[in-house]
């Protein structure tokens, strides 16, 4: 339907407003991250733009600079304290390793499982699917205590072995992500008509070749979407990471330590928080062109 001119303008205005509403917290966060402490903690007014930007918060959290030194250099004496504890470079690496690892594990398993669920008839298929989804109904906190015990026994805690710690976190994220990933991938596979599989088989392809050369390339977009979802979940997960690891500090857990007994380090929290948006953002940019569902277009009639 073609909208009349006033409606079009109204629609655009509303769209901009809604977008602005959703983007505002991110903007505010980014602003906070470059404000000097005096601007963040101004008790008389809300400081929007009239402050002298500072990179101290990034310097400390992302480059491991000493805050005391920076403060002295810049002649700021207020709230100086703490040192190494705010260096978040390790956390970023930890988060990267765990998120990328768990995303890879989840995606591979989900794609294979979803293909089987979509294409092969086997006893208990529907039950299995419900059971898979059922796993997701359980709140992680409900399984936390047994999980910690299990991890301790299985040697999957980083206090025993750092690498096992990474593996442990990847595994639990994969487990939490799998139900949704399988379901999502199944819907993408279901969108590819079975005739395509059959055509490939008649063309001489084995089941594996059909999957690898025909069906999988047709659901590339779906794989990308699933991977993004898993990555974002792993990147932002807090609870399990907090309980299952000690040396490994993923970004959300790290940020939480900035709330200290001597005060909340809003500048650092904002800086790391803003920086933490960037990897997800890059990841989404990378797979964005695959995020188009129309990829199966053309294999079918109109």
């Amino acid at each position: 339907m073609e909208l009349s001119r006033p409606w079009q303008i109204l629609r655009d205005v509303v769209a901009v407003l809604v977008t602005g509403l959703f983007m505002f917290p991110i903007l505010w966060w980014a602003l906070t991250s470059i404000k000097p402490i005096s601007a963040i903690f101004d008790k008389d007014r809300v400081v929007f733009f009239d402050f002298v930007p500072t990179w101290i918060n990034y310097g400390v959290t992302m480059l491991g600079m000493s805050r005391s030194q920076l403060a002295i250099d810049q002649g700021i004496g207020m709230g100086v304290g703490g040192a190494e504890a705010y260096d978040s470079r390790r956390s970023i690496i930890d988060s990267m390793v765990v998120s990328v690892g768990s995303t890879a594990v989840t995606t591979v398993i989900a794609v294979l499982a979803a293909y089987a669920l979509s294409r092969m008839a086997f006893r208990g298929r529907a039950t299995f699917l419900n059971w898979v989804l059922g796993q997701r109904f359980m709140p992680p906190i409900a399984i936390l205590i047994p999980l910690v015990t299990i991890y301790k026994t299985a040697g999957l805690r980083d206090t025993d072995n750092l690498y096992m710690g990474y593996l442990g976190l990847m595994l639990i994220y994969a487990l939490i992500n799998l139900p949704i990933a399988v379901l999502l991938m199944k819907s993408f596979f279901d969108d590819v008509p079975k005739d395509v599989d059959e055509a490939a088989m008649i063309d001489g392809a084995t089941r594996i070749q059909t999957f690898r050369k025909v069906v999988l390339p047709m659901v590339k977009g779906g794989v990308a979407a699933t991977a993004v979802l898993c990555f974002i979940f792993s990147w932002t997960e807090f609870l399990l990471s907090l309980f299952l690891t000690t040396d490994i500090r993923t970004v959300p857990v790290k940020i939480q330590t900035f709330v200290t007994s001597t005060g909340n380090e809003w500048g650092f929290i904002a800086a790391l928080g803003t920086a933490a948006v960037i990897p997800s953002f890059i990841f989404i940019l990378l797979v964005q062109r695959h995020l188009v569902r129309g990829l199966t277009l053309g294999s079918l009639k109109e």
């Binding site: 395509v196 008649i202 047709m218 079918l300």
Partner: peptide
């Protein structure tokens, strides 16, 4: 050693 043409063509879209 057969070939089949499907109602919805079933082409490989990619």
């Amino acid at each position: 050693n057969i070939a089949m043409v499907f109602q919805n063509y079933a082409l490989y879209a990619h």
